[in-house]
């Protein structure tokens, strides 16, 4: 299994992904006015850059076919998912729950990036952060988010 992972031609996939992203931009961008060199429309630069990205994606994929394979340095899944989830959870809660509950939940969630072990920090860090949110952001900096 390990050797399969190491031998896999990741750059071919990466180049393919680049081409897909570029095609998305190309398809949407081609609906914009392209214009001419003298009067460039809003579609001129995006279409040119997207074509460039298609070509470069193909080059990356072709280069990945030959030579040694590079092993990607992937992160651990747990911190990856937790860190990515934090802003999403924050954005889903903040509008109806207000600063304090949102911060408490986000801080506890962020703590789960590493294996949970009981410690006073588990309670004190979220409370401290809620205080920072209320006193520094709302009171001092004047950010217009309700506390609750």
């Amino acid at each position: 299994m390990q050797s399969k992972f190491e031998d896999f031609r990741w750059d071919v996939v990466a180049g393919g992904a680049m081409i897909l992203i570029a095609l998305l931009f190309l398809v949407v961008g081609s609906q914009l006015t392209f214009g001419s060199l003298t009067r460039m429309g809003p579609g001129f630069l995006p279409v040119c850059a997207a074509i460039g990205l298609v070509v470069l994606g193909a080059v990356v994929a072709l280069e990945g076919l030959k030579g040694e394979t590079a092993v990607p340095e992937l992160p651990k899944l747990r911190p990856f998912l937790v860190v990515i989830a934090c802003p999403i959870v924050f954005s889903l809660m903040i509008e109806w729950a207000g600063m304090v509950p949102t911060v408490l939940v986000t801080a506890v969630l962020a703590r789960m990036a590493e294996p949970l072990k009981w410690g006073w920090d588990l309670v004190l860090v979220p409370i401290g952060l809620a205080a920072v949110g209320v006193f520094i952001f709302i009171d001092f900096l004047g950010v217009a988010i309700p506390a609750f």
């Binding site: 860190v83 934090c86 802003p87 924050f90 600063m99 911060v103 986000t106 801080a107 506890v108 962020a110 703590r111 990036a113 860090v125 979220p126 401290g128 952060l129 920072v132 949110g133 952001f137 950010v143």
Partner: peptide
């Protein structure tokens, strides 16, 4: 990291 992450979100 919880501290940094939460403050980044705010």
């Amino acid at each position: 990291f919880p501290v940094i992450l939460t403050i980044c979100c705010i």
